[in-house]
């Protein structure tokens, strides 16, 4: 096996992917102990816990893009807002 230097890993991106992997494992374990049910909340479609996680993450990504594109402020604020958004989608979606 030759080297993978071209993948150009950095600490923040590695942490990002580990975070995603951790989320997936966490969701699997959670599912084992308390299975999810289809629920109908504020979103227009009935969703499971996994669906809401995905919708929340996707919405957070777009929030970051909008933040970077429209405001001059630090993306860390967007990160905080996304966390709020993710939690509320998981809870009320």
């Amino acid at each position: 096996m030759s080297d993978f230097e071209w993948m150009a890993w950095t600490a923040p991106t590695a942490a990002f992917f580990l975070g995603i992997a951790g989320l997936l494992i966490g969701m699997t374990v959670w599912q084992r102990f308390s299975p999810t049910r289809l629920q109908r909340g504020l979103l227009p479609i009935a969703t499971t816990r996994g669906d809401r996680l995905f919708i929340g993450l996707l919405a957070s990504a777009f929030l970051h893009l909008a933040w970077l594109g429209l405001t001059p402020w630090s993306p860390l604020i967007a990160l905080g807002l996304s966390a709020l958004l993710l939690v509320s989608v998981m809870r009320f979606g």
Binding site: W6, M7, A8, W9, P12, T13, F16, F17
Partner: peptide, 8 residues
């Protein structure tokens, strides 16, 4: 993953 790494 590589694209994500490049992007930053």
């Amino acid at each position: 993953m590589t694209v994500v790494n490049y992007s930053v």
